[in-house]
Write a protein that binds this DNA or RNA. Structure first.
Lengths: 334, 334
DNA sequence: ATGAAAGCGCTAACAG
DNA sequence: CTGTTAGCGCTTTCAT
């Protein structure tokens, strides 16, 4: 025979009080006489009663769970953000439903819909690009949304990022100061605003300031993968680049190793700066110079912002920019 | 004014059918006349009706979500498993509630309880060690549990792993064949069965077969981190080890870089073999030799097993061992 | 401080 | 093939 699930009703009966009272003590409502509270608590303990969050969710219209959409958790950039998100979520008593989207448009919409169907109280979205359809869904639903480490020029929703333009400009400026004239720009698709708009603008600004002409041949779009990076080095060599600014750490490591495997001296003959400062950057030799982003914090702050939004608190600014820096390590000249 | 959520009842009214019929078409029940199905579907579309999964969960006692407990998602070993889990979960229409435990006993219990309160249909646990309390909770609850990449000698629950003992034995045997006499065993706590029992047994077996005495001084327990590895190299040098078998990739990379930073030639002067074959192993130079585990598959198979358990299907064997191999790469002699 | 009662939105017999 | 009717377990007014 199935073990009977014990409900709030059982507790009420055993404690000689009403369901309402049990509900009150479970929810920490102060309007309960200490004696009855004690009595109820004791019965709860004795019966090993565990509130059913689903029933509670249906009645209260709050699930205390938030949806997290991520391209791929095995990417350290995203898993670092996810970690920050989960920690703050836990702190505020939320749980996370984590869904990998593979940045696939269909899957994203699909995932968003099941998340909404599951009545999540809020959503954190990470990705490289927001399709029109997603944007439409975001604004159509009254569920709060925060973009973490993800930019959207037309975003009506909250977001947490660093200033990619400025960071990129600084990197390029430093590279130019070290004597580089041909600095490649390697990133994912330029149709992604973070690449095509923000980083690219920073790149061009630095070039312009230094009086260097923008050369399209130095710009490479590719996928975010180690493999793509390894193959990329040849192309960089072919166009005569002496340095590369790279938008993703795994990609950068691919390029670094590609160069190394060709016997190129790093940083003497080729410099590379990456963008995410994931822990990978410190695990390779030479250590990768990089823009330092507070990855964990971006996630944490995103979740914190989301809690405010879910709580309908007033937020002064829902487009948050966190500080960044540049770490000069082994892949750039001293 | 709040936008009124539209329910199954609204659809029923608009379509001139009963809630039951709407429910049937929503759930793909074949017992609906094509005409009415069409009519209902049209109303659903027009009203933009979206079934409430929480209400459904309460009524059906199934949430189609599973809990996933993991020490830390930013660890590539675990995120790789998690990725496999999520993909199969999606395939079977489940969602994943992901919770980081930091391998903290208290937090684990805490997390397990909220997962259970949220009525997850099943749980996948990853970790280094299962405390008595967790084991007790697992057997007390009727919610199916599967351990992924996690061993528990007394496990009553499902599990998916490789044969750690055999794999370790093979590694050590190969290392011995290459002339090493002093091979260090570096892992996390030996109180964790995977280290203290399985891997250690493999280590000792290989030694014994080769007639080499077990030397406690060659065994090192440490935490799973890159940093710990970097610091570990000195100790290895001190005891005169010429090779190391390492239980974790980040740890192994730390050791590798520690040696490299000391100017040690790898693999000529020191060999290292790691255990998890995460993508990190191919990103360092020289590439790390490793036991190859099908990480993604361990996750995928775990989730598949869990679906069967949740479905109360008959499973021949719930302790699954997946095949492994040894990849001889740059950190071992040819 | 406590109880009664009406839902929350849906599924699942059961009946027809 | 379709409708009726109970719940699922809890929160939340509204009384008292």
């Amino acid at each position: 025979m199935e073990k009977q699930t014990i409900t709030i009703y059982d507790v009420a009966r055993e404690a000689n009080v009403s369901m309402a009272t049990v509900s009150r003590v479970v929810n920490g409502n102060p309007n309960v006489k200490p004696t009855t509270r004690k009595k109820v608590l004791e019965v709860i303990d004795r019966l090993d009663y565990r509130p059913n969050a689903v029933a509670r969710g249906l009645a209260s219209k709050k699930t205390t769970t938030v949806g997290v959409i991520v391209p791929d958790v095995t990417n350290l950039y995203f898993s670092s953000l996810a970690r920050g998100i989960d920690d703050i979520a836990t702190m505020y008593k939320y749980n996370i439903i984590l869904a990998n989207s593979d940045q696939n448009d269909q899957k994203e919409i699909q995932v968003l819909n099941t998340l909404l169907a599951k009545q999540v109280d809020g959503i954190i979205y990470m990705g490289h690009k927001i399709t029109d359809e997603m944007r439409a869904e975001f604004s159509r639903s009254k569920t709060p949304v925060v973009l973490a480490g993800t930019v959207d020029p037309d975003a009506q929703v909250g977001s947490v990022n660093i200033d990619y333009t400025e960071a990129t400009e600084q990197v390029i400026t430093q590279l130019i100061a070290k004597g580089n004239k041909k600095i490649s720009f390697v990133s994912g698709a330029l149709t992604e605003p973070i690449n095509g708009i923000y980083r690219m603008n920073g790149y061009k600004k630095a070039l312009k300031k230094a009086g260097i002409n923008f050369d399209e041949k130095l710009v490479f779009e590719t996928e975010y993968s180690y493999q793509a990076g390894e193959e990329m080095y040849n192309k960089l060599a072919k166009v005569g680049a002496t340095a590369a600014f790279v938008g993703d750490d795994e990609l950068a490591i691919g390029i670094l190793n590609g160069a190394l495997d060709h016997g190129i001296k790093i940083p003497e003959k080729f410099e590379v700066v990456t963008s995410n400062n994931s822990k990978l950057t410190e695990m390779v030799r030479p250590r990768l110079s990089t823009i330092t982003q507070p990855l964990y914090d971006i996630g944490a702050v995103s979740m914190r912002l989301l809690t405010k939004l879910m709580n309908k608190e007033e937020v002064e600014e829902k487009t948050i920019i966190l500080p960044h820096n540049i770490a000069d390590r082994g892949t750039t000249k001293k």
